[in-house]
């Protein structure tokens, strides 16, 4: 009898493991795929949160870098992963909204249909910076200068299809000015050229710009967010300059493959919200001038991704950038 019960228990346990019930999740380490190289802002943020998240979930969280093609390679990998909650994606505006529209029909995933969007993580607006010798000091002066000298202003970006590139295109379209886009390969390689005046203008995040502007190597002339940044209270926003269409905000979020049980989505979202309230993470966000978007849970985040895709579809068509 006892033996029979043991067998039954073993059988039940085997089936239990086989079926991996959603309410027990997570029973083994969770892999958090960062579709960018180790060492970048995205990677660093993920690692900072992962430490706290592991604590909240009671399982280790392994950050795995799968860089390539501006985030497409890693994002693709998660889209086809098993929807069991053990493969998590650190999603962001590039591979989730910009690139799907820029490379329409060429990507193997659909940013809305192939993912369960779990939780918003950060949002950050860009600063508009100019070379220290540029003949303009404010956003209106830039626009006046660009109008008087059409095509003379060169703006750099870390590459075609990045949020920073779109910030420039949006501003040019909204202000009806002509600027020449000079693409670079990575975030910081354009900074030397901006400091020495080879290019005149650039758009980038506070964490990138602050060290240079503090040292007087470049001047901040504006910001692309809807509100002024606490660390740069003097930088006029594009909205204040009368160009609400030029608002551009970069964001990151967490997503799972579509088809993941709702219990897991909710549990992960809760654990992430708790992690983001942790003092070490709060401090990290503050230092890097990233705004946490803790309020965007699974429902709001899905809606947000849909809206972002609509927005970039419009920009790509308007600027004639589709491939």
């Amino acid at each position: 009898m006892i033996r029979l019960m043991t067998i039954a228990a073993v059988v039940a346990a085997t089936f239990g493991v086989g079926m991996a019930r959603a309410e027990d999740w997570p029973t083994r380490p969770v892999t958090w795929v960062v579709p960018f190289a180790a060492g970048g802002v995205t990677d660093t943020t993920a690692r900072k949160i992962a430490v706290v998240l592991a604590d909240k979930l009671g399982q280790s969280v392994i950050v795995e870098n799968k860089p390539g093609a501006g985030g497409i390679v890693g994002t693709e990998g998660v889209a086809v992963a098993k929807p069991d909650g053990y493969t998590v994606l650190y999603a962001s505006g590039g591979p989730m909204a910009i690139l799907p529209n820029l490379k329409k029909g060429k990507l193997s995933y659909d940013p809305v249909k192939d993912f369960a969007h779990v939780q918003g993580i950060t949002s950050s607006s860009q600063l508009i910076v100019a070379s220290p010798n540029a003949p303009f000091n404010t956003l209106p002066e830039l626009i006046a200068y660009a109008k008087a000298n059409p095509g003379k202003v060169n703006f750099g970006s870390p590459g075609i299809g990045t949020a920073q590139h779109f910030a420039g295109e949006l501003l040019a379209a909204a202000a009806d000015i002509e600027m020449t886009h000079i693409p670079y390969k990575a975030g910081t390689s354009q900074m030397v050229d901006l400091m020495s005046g080879v290019i005149d203008l650039s758009f980038d995040y506070t964490s990138v710009i602050k060290p240079y502007s503090d040292a007087g190597k470049m001047k901040v002339i504006g910001a692309t967010g809807p509100e002024r940044l606490p660390s740069f209270p003097d930088a006029m926003t594009v909205v204040e300059a009368g160009l609400p269409d030029a608002v551009n905000v970069g964001w990151t979020s967490v997503a799972l493959p579509a088809g993941t049980p709702q219990e897991i989505v909710d549990k992960l979202s809760g654990a992430l919200q708790a992690s983001m309230a942790d003092p070490s993470v709060v401090e990290y966000f503050a230092i890097n001038a990233q705004t946490p978007i803790t309020d965007k849970g699974p429902k709001d985040m899905t809606q947000f991704v849909v809206e972002e895709n609509e927005k970039f579809a419009r920009i790509v068509t308007a600027a004639g950038l589709a491939e």
Binding site: P211, D214, A215
Partner: peptide, 8 residues
């Protein structure tokens, strides 16, 4: 939490 740059 160190920002590399001219100010370091």
């Amino acid at each position: 939490n160190i920002q590399p740059g001219p100010q370091v």
